[in-house]
Design a protein around this nucleic acid. Structure first.
Lengths: 252, 252
DNA sequence: GCTGCCGCAATTGTGTACAATGATGTTTCA
DNA sequence: TGAAACATCATTGTACACAATTGCGGCAGC
């Protein structure tokens, strides 16, 4: 690489070679920021199911053009996180009970396989990194950043999946995690000690022991416990208009 | 529904009326056409792995603006069917051997679950529709529309998945099917009797019998046989963009 | 009082111009 | 001759303007 270039060029090259791979495969264009920003907001419960995402508003808030907003929303819609209806805009999805079960079930299916491959591929170093991740998450919560804690909790599952080399299933999980956040937002119960950190540590230990079946079972149970804590029992009766549209503010 | 139409048209209408509502809940805007057109081209082997998809060229071929092309490409990139690199454009992915195995493996995982749910939910009517689909596919091939035959072959797996109500896994399969087409395009061997129609009929029969385990095994083996017929060692060279869309009237 | 129709406002869809970036070919100097 | 710096071109990224569509409120008719 040429070393006689101006400082500016040098910095630029450094940025390109360092930032790019990190910022990475997705899209390091401007809409990536907005995409992640919205995703984070969902993982942190700052954005709730059913919220309408108007293009102009987002463009104003983030000081970008509608073009950029549009791309971000399109990506989110493909992740099944927002629902875009032609000429009617984008809203954050409100998974019904059936859909919620379906998503949790898909998560178990996919995470089971990912944890299988992860257990086989795990090394001491990668597991230590993972432990660090859970510790960070626990500390965040103790500092009462509850929202961030949950986001990091989702991060654990993503990081865990990274132990495997299966980017296909990883990408599916990356869609399912925010969807899970929305489900939790909709159906959480008063006692919502959601992703237990202890359980995460347990999972890591079992993976470290190399027992594939036990690891799969543990993750499966872990996800099942999360689902069980939700209030998915009382489905709304099909004919009940008021229950079905409870989210609509009733007129005075 | 009009009853004077030919049998072939009837089947097509059935397909449309069943497929469309789900398919285009997504986006019935103009880019949907382009998206499907490119997808079809891939399923029909008119577009090969590695082809560069330039925005201006596509805009010219389909007589739309770059805006529309852009949206279609963005959607395709999210499906992991094209790879968009900032400022360097979109190319159709060329899955390496590892990735190919990964995709086929993911397909087995997901189709196993889908066929489980499908077997439970199947009715005589839905299975008859499915049989019709395979017959249609077989007829297409006999009329030497080899390409279309393969596309319909992919359709079978999609239609089969629709017997289940699991739209989440369905959407993943809808990404995996075109990816499989690209894999086949890259690694097919001279004797490429790919998706055997007889095997499809067999699968339907087993589902009709209601034997969940047998159905799962059958589908798994079916997919494994497809993978086994591939030569995951030799790669092919990219094809030509204009040849792929020769049927589209180019504007002067 | 309820229903359907019509016009206006709000919002999204599309096309196009221009800026920014990366690729390519050419020139110059050792 | 070779390689590096530069200029040029091709291609994509972004912004904005305008068209198309939808939803809403008021009004007339039953």
């Amino acid at each position: 690489m040429a070393s006689k270039k101006s400082k500016a060029s040098d910095v630029k090259e450094t940025l390109n070679s360092v930032v790019r791979p990190l910022e990475e495969a997705l899209n390091s264009t401007q809409d990536g920021r907005l995409y992640n920003e919205i995703l984070d907001a969902i993982l942190d419960y700052r954005l709730s199911p059913g919220v309408k995402l108007k293009e102009d508003e987002l463009a104003g808030i983030f000081s970008v053009s509608r073009t950029v907003v549009r791309r971000a929303l399109l990506r989110l819609s493909h992740d099944r996180i927002v629902d875009i209806q032609p000429n009617r805009g984008a809203t954050i999805i409100r998974p019904d009970v059936q859909k919620a079960r379906e998503i949790m079930s898909a998560r178990r299916l996919i995470e089971r396989e990912l944890v299988r491959e992860a257990t086989i591929a795990a090394t001491k170093e990668s597991l230590d990194t993972l432990r660090q991740c859970v510790e960070d998450e626990r500390d965040q919560v103790r500092r009462q950043h509850v929202g961030s804690g949950l986001r990091l909790s989702g991060d654990f599952h993503i990081q865990l999946s990274r132990l495997s080399a299966n980017t296909t299933l990883q990408s599916y999980l990356k869609e399912l995690v925010p969807q899970t956040s929305l489900i939790i937002a909709m159906y959480q119960t008063p006692h919502h000690t959601l992703c237990s950190h202890q359980e995460h540590f347990d999972i890591i230990d079992i993976i470290a022991a190399g027992d594939v079946d036990a690891a799969q079972t543990e993750v499966d149970n872990h996800l099942q416990r999360i689902e069980d804590k939700l209030d998915l029992g009382n489905e709304r009766s099909p004919g009940d208009l008021y229950a079905a549209f409870a989210h609509v503010k009733a007129k005075d």
